[in-house]
């Protein structure tokens, strides 16, 4: 499997502030779906920003497909915690946006947007405005927009955090389905242990002050994963294991 992202002893601090990340090293292979889990402030989002090229490293090295990360490169797309759709554009125009910014012709970007909207089952909402959609639909539109560039790497920063449990579980399954079809390498930030275990083949557990990776767990549950996966003993035991490692990493204050 080719290496998509390679971090070596990466550190990050903002200005003169304390270290946000320190000694972070890992490799992501093509097709990996890696969850980053840890307490608030452990640098999960910062790590994604470094991979996206939105923020420079303070120390260490980082290679994305063998090169230093650069913004505007076609291989990386991002889904934020909020859907970040432009409220004045229809859903279709929102999905077309990354292609429009790259000067792709109107006809071509319409075809791509329609394909992506059908992938996230939002074709019927193409001409609606974001405010006319539910939270879950908006997030699916945001994912469709990220996928419109056919990225090699997809960064998802707690995309389902604000959604209700049922919608979240449903979108988890949809995301895995899209991952199976599009075969990108994914980084998924979450606070939910069950979500991390359900989605990923690898889980990186982080701790704060400064942020670092303290455990890596391999999730050997077979794909495709469904509702039955969530009820299986192997799933529940992995959830228990990751939870106890998280608790040990960040003991509750007395």
């Amino acid at each position: 499997m080719p290496t998509m992202v390679d971090l070596n002893d990466v550190a990050k601090r903002y200005g003169d502030g304390p270290l946000v990340l320190d000694g972070v090293s890992f490799r992501a292979e093509k097709g990996d779906l890696i969850s980053l889990i840890g307490p608030s402030g452990c640098g999960k989002t910062t790590l994604l920003r470094l991979i996206a090229g939105l923020s420079p490293l303070s120390a260490g090295s980082l290679a994305v497909e063998g090169r230093a990360p650069s913004i505007g490169s076609r291989e990386i797309a991002c889904v934020f915690q909020d859907p970040t759709l432009l409220p004045w554009l229809t859903i279709q125009k929102n999905v077309e946006l990354p292609l429009r910014l790259r000067g792709v012709s109107t006809a071509e970007r319409e075809i791509v947007a329609q394909r992506m909207l059908s992938l996230v089952r939002l074709s019927e909402c193409a001409q609606r405005y974001p405010r006319q959609l539910s939270g879950g639909q908006r997030m699916r539109a945001s994912i469709a927009r990220a996928l419109s560039l056919s990225p090699d790497i997809l960064l998802l920063d707690e995309p389902f955090g604000a959604l209700d449990e049922m919608t979240r579980a449903h979108l988890n399954e949809e995301l895995l389905d899209i991952h199976r079809q599009e075969a990108w390498t994914g980084f998924f930030v979450t606070h939910s242990v069950a979500e991390a275990v359900f989605l990923s083949n690898r889980i990186l557990i982080m701790r704060a002050n400064p942020g670092r990776i303290i455990h890596e767990i391999s999730v050997d549950l077979p794909y495709p994963r469904t509702e039955q996966t969530r009820e299986s003993g192997a799933f529940l035991s992995l959830v228990g294991r990751v939870s106890s490692l998280l608790r040990a990493a960040e003991p509750l204050p007395a």
Partner: peptide, 19 residues
């Protein structure tokens, strides 16, 4: 986040202002 999004997709200054 929207500004980050535009930067991530390589928008130039004119696109960032107009769009």
């Amino acid at each position: 986040n929207l500004v980050d999004l535009f930067r991530l997709y390589g928008a130039n200054k004119r696109q960032e202002i107009c769009l």
